[in-house]
């Protein structure tokens, strides 16, 4: 491990010496830096070559990619889909919200034909979902068809935080009213 600061376009070594890591790129058998930061060389026992990466102190805001887990807030629902404002990608917060949609067939993996959007999500719910495709020009397509995915935080009509009691139901601790949600498995 070393702490030499490099700028974009700096030649770091050849591909025979290192593996391409984050913040670097390969061009004509050489590895170059693509951001400003310190060089880190990490040795991996499973791989032949050590991985070289350039890390910047100031994190740039995250953007969703296919297969990444995102967290966001439901902003509107209709019978065909729920619209989500993506606020966090993985563990990194986004500076600007991205829009994603959960279509009715992507809510859960079983009994897809019986899914009703308004019995799965309500506006204001915080949902964890997985990106399935970059989607159309407006939004990413998301899915919650996994045990760990779904509503992780929801409030009842009286404004209390609800507690999940089954895969499909949440209860309000104050009024004991049950509401339907596609609950995520708590971890």
């Amino acid at each position: 491990m070393s702490a030499t600061t490099v700028t974009p376009g700096k030649k770091l070594g050849s591909i025979q010496e290192y593996e391409v890591g984050p913040g670097t790129y390969m061009r004509n058998n050489y590895i170059y830096s693509s951001t400003v930061g310190d060089i880190y060389i990490i040795k991996d026992v499973n791989k032949k070559l050590p991985c070289i990466s350039v890390v910047k102190d100031k994190e740039q805001s995250a953007i969703p990619e296919v297969d990444s887990i995102v967290t966001g807030k439901i902003i509107r629902v209709n019978p065909k889909m729920a619209t989500l404002a993506i606020m966090v990608v993985g563990n990194k917060p986004c500076k600007d919200d991205f829009q994603g949609i959960i279509r009715v067939q992507d809510v859960r993996s079983t009994e897809k034909d019986k899914v009703q959007i308004y019995r799965s999500f309500r506006p204001g719910d915080i949902v964890r979902a997985r990106v399935i495709s970059l989607g159309d020009r407006h939004s990413y397509y998301l899915t919650t068809a996994e045990n760990e995915l779904g509503v992780i935080f929801a409030q009842s009509i009286s404004g209390e935080t609800m507690i999940p009691i089954s895969w499909q139901q949440m209860i309000c601790p104050k009024t004991k009213v049950m509401e339907y949600r596609k609950c995520a498995k708590p971890n």
Binding site: P8, G9, Y25, T35, V36, Q60
Partner: peptide, 11 residues
């Protein structure tokens, strides 16, 4: 751009 952490081939 570099300050924003945007990945560039070169300055």
């Amino acid at each position: 751009l570099t300050d924003a952490g945007i990945q560039m081939y070169d300055l």
